[in-house]
Computed example of a mutant assay.
Amino acid sequence: MGRGVENWFCGGALIWLVLLCVEGGASDDLVVRQSHGKGAKRPKGALAVSRDIERRVVEAGGNTEGVMVVSLSWASADDLDLHVVLPGGEEISYKRKKAAGGELDVDMCVQGRHSGKCAERPVENVVFDYEPPAGRYKIFVQNFNYHLNTLPENMQVARMQEGIKTSKEERELRLSQNRPVLFDLLVKVHGVKKLFEGLCTPTGKTLASSDVRVIEFDYDPQEESFTTDFEASPSPECTQYTEKLKLAAPEKRRSLPGRDAKVTSVEQKNRDRGGKGAGKTDGKGRDAKRSAALQAVRSAPESLSSKPASALRSLLADLGTACKGCTEKGDLVERLLDVAGVRQEL
């Protein structure tokens, strides 16, 4: 089967639906077919996102090498739950973690980040090590409970170092329970992957009222194939909330048109004091840092996704730029690859 990524437009919302079939050592090159038929381009970060999800599942002790794997990813401390309804009506979830050869092997954020297992970017995972039953599968995501949605620790540290304060708008968007919860979902069946990005649970809803049906498909074990009957796309609510978060971020509000690099706290202090060295930097030191950062990115681009976000932001700073409004590690990786001129096929 060929490899492809398609743009799907549904109800005016845009969703990247990534379809990747890995066969016998073939490369992971992407071919993009746009619904309006105007040429092709590579979707920014789509495969980087799918690989990052799988990496985090493995780090959490989950298995991504089964015949069928369903992985949920989100970026808050809320208790999202993955549900897989099997042919015949059985259901795999936190209530029943094993059924028909499938298992929920990663379950996060039951009690938020104050206790229990809850990473800065949580995941849940259902895997079938062997052949799953034939028939109709339904996958949905539920917001079991809201938890305090603080920024990841590395972002808090980075902001403190840069002297950036969280805006009132951003605090309201993150800390209130009157908000949707954004998530991504990756489905893999016999090596064929589908990635759903930018989905969300309904604003202020929990338990059954928050259920989001993501995909329904029929699986044929003899053909080792599946045919989708339903695929979700981001609602306007999800898209609007994402944009509000970006606009409310202090990094976004303080950025100036046509300027990539942020004013550092040291430069700002110099300007405030009116010192002779205001805005000046050591040219040799800056060039050395830039050279080292370019070498780090170009020599091992595949290792970037394993680095903490703070390290990626530091590399960007050494390159004399930043990633405005970026909240996901995949965005930081893509920005580094672009700045360093690396054409990495992920």
Rank of each mutant, 00 (worst) to 15 (best):
M1P: 10
W8L: 15
W16V: 04
C21A: 13
A26H: 11
D28Y: 05
Q34M: 12
S35N: 08
G39P: 06
R42W: 04
R42L: 12
R42S: 11
K44P: 07
K44D: 08
A46E: 02
V49E: 06
S50A: 15
S50H: 02
D52S: 13
V58C: 08
A60R: 15
N63P: 01
E65H: 12
G66T: 05
V67W: 05
L72M: 12
S76Y: 02
A77Q: 01
D78A: 11
L80W: 09
L80A: 08
D81A: 11
L82G: 00
L86H: 02
S93N: 06
Y94F: 15
K97S: 14
G101D: 05
D105N: 14
R113A: 13
S115Y: 06
A119Q: 07
P122R: 03
Y130K: 11
Y137S: 01
K138I: 04
Q142H: 02
N143W: 00
F144C: 06
Q156N: 08
G163E: 07
T166K: 06
Q177R: 14
R179E: 01
L182W: 00
K193Y: 01
K194L: 09
F196W: 08
L199G: 10
C200S: 15
C200L: 01
K205I: 00
A208D: 14
V214A: 03
D220C: 11
Q222L: 13
F226M: 11
T227G: 03
C238Q: 07
L247Y: 03
P257L: 09
R259V: 15
A261D: 10
K269A: 15
R271K: 13
R273I: 12
D287C: 12
S291I: 07
Q295L: 07
V297W: 02
L304F: 01
A311L: 13
L315F: 06
A317S: 14
G320C: 06
K329E: 05
D331P: 00
L336Y: 00
V339P: 01
